[in-house]
Amino acid sequence: MKASQQYAGIPKWVLAIAIIGALFVMLPLVAMVVRVNWAEFIPLITSQSSIDALLLSLRTSSIATLLCIIVGVPMALVLARTSFPGQRILRSLVLLPLVLPPVVGGIALLYTFGRQGLLKAPMDFLGIQIAFSTTAVILAQTFVALPFLVLSLEGALRTVGTRYEAIGATLGAGPTTVLRRITLPLVLPALISGAVLSFARALGEFGATLTFAGSLQGVTRTLPLEIYLQRETDPDAAVALSLVLIAVAIIVVGLANQIGSNSRLYGERIS
């Protein structure tokens, strides 16, 4: 059966509003593509500072996404599968970076991990200096991207329920085996889409990085910061780089969706 033969029960006015909404998002992108100086496009995006910024962005965003998965999966599990006093408040606090202006996030990170921050004593003791380093960029990106992963994974965990997990446990599987063999495969599509959103957010991160990490070519100046700086002198370069940023995001999201749909088939097979 083809999808087109399905009952498409959408009123026409819903479709009309949806198209307006889609145009609202798409038109600015089109406007930017129109503005690109194509004759100079390749030289503009292959300058040393641009390449440094792109590579730095890809590197830090990947590590930040990995960190989001490592700490975000346990966080989502605890929020979805356990109940304890104050859990609602904890969830709201964990999701706070979603609504916080990134600059505020950067200031908060500065007051935590900065040279004069809350963790000054232990960090001095260990000889760790985070300010103005690539580590600071990764921390800022992880801070703003983490809620995206936790949110999408927690929702999926609640939706799939605990039926299969309970059956697995009655058949003698320990908690870790249940987690590894049942829970995680079930929510793998959500995990992947959550990770993709986190990556996209980390890639676009600007305010927290600028406030917390500074801006130095090859060390802390990620693609959004490079765009911000180029805009001062060379708007053509800024537009060209913006297009690169969008292209990278589209490629990553496209690839991840491909993986996601494959793993979803796998998920359907085991369920």
């Binding site: 589209i250 496209g254 749909s261």
Partner: peptide
């Protein structure tokens, strides 16, 4: 087939969201 359609819509939605997140931040 509903899954196929839903998957397609989800892919598109994810693309739009990701693009919006990236461009919005810049």
């Amino acid at each position: 087939s509903t899954d196929t359609a839903r998957r397609w819509v989800q892919s598109l939605a994810a693309l739009v969201i990701a693009a919006a997140v990236v461009t919005g931040a810049a």
